[in-house]
């Protein structure tokens, strides 16, 4: 299933170089070209991985996200070799846990981030990692196309908003998500642009409520 949504250039402009992979088709063995360049594409590829274990789609996701996970982990203080191993684990988890991916609830970037974060916690400590109970979305949980679009848009808007922030504020946000700031340091920090962030994802709450059974 490929999602028929707005073309990526409408969201990011034409600048973004597309990811392009050539991979043998599972059924026919013929080479297939997969191109992707934005969150809408990632969501479609991730759904293809989830629903039909599409390896070509996975290869394209790997090409985009694995280097970002590695970069993110290195910025969080992990050495290059460990970050490489970790990024490979994270991508394998993306495949293994694909059934949990719901494009209406989170963008692929967000989902990859949570997997990378969990991996980092598991490496750093032997402690358990308490997680909120999963919601039961009910048997009729076919995601709404508008929600899928919106989840991807949120990430696009956030990436744009982060890069538009003054250097000092952007650094603070990054440090918080690299795990460099404790909760009391975050609470004491007045320079965090939380209003800006929340205005970019004002719909998250509405979307959740709509989908709640």
């Amino acid at each position: 299933m490929l999602l028929d949504l707005a073309p990526c250039t409408a969201i990011y402009g034409a600048k973004l170089p597309p990811v392009r992979v050539v991979w043998p088709d599972m059924g026919t063995g013929k080479l297939r070209v997969v191109e992707a360049s934005c969150e809408t594409d990632w969501a479609a590829l991730m759904v293809a991985v989830r629903d039909s274990q599409d390896r070509a789609a996975f290869a394209a996701l790997f090409q985009h996200f694995a280097p970002r996970v590695k970069g993110f982990l290195m910025k969080s203080g992990t050495d290059a070799a460990m970050a490489e191993d970790c990024a490979q684990d994270v991508m394998a988890t993306l495949w293994n846990k694909a059934a949990l991916y719901d494009p209406a609830r989170a963008s692929v970037a967000t989902w990859v981030f949570t997997i990378a974060r969990n991996r980092r916690i598991d490496l750093a400590r032997k402690a358990r990692r308490p997680e909120p109970d999963a919601l039961d979305w009910g048997p009729d949980s076919q995601p709404d196309q508008a929600d899928i679009y919106e989840a991807g848009q949120e990430t696009a808007r956030l990436v744009a908003a982060l890069s538009a922030l003054p250097e000092k504020q952007r650094t603070l946000i990054q440090r918080a998500f690299y795990g460099e700031l404790s909760h009391s340091e975050i609470a004491a920090e007045t320079g965090l642009p939380l209003g800006t962030i929340k205005s970019r994802i004002r719909l998250a709450l509405d979307r959740l409520r709509q989908n709640m059974k």
């Binding site: 910025k75 989170a106 990430t155 982060l162 994802i201």
Partner: peptide, 14 residues
């Protein structure tokens, strides 16, 4: 978590 996703996505890839 979406902010985390944006930080990761916008981060310098290695």
């Amino acid at each position: 978590e979406a902010v985390g996703g944006a930080v990761l996505d916008g981060d310098a890839a290695v």
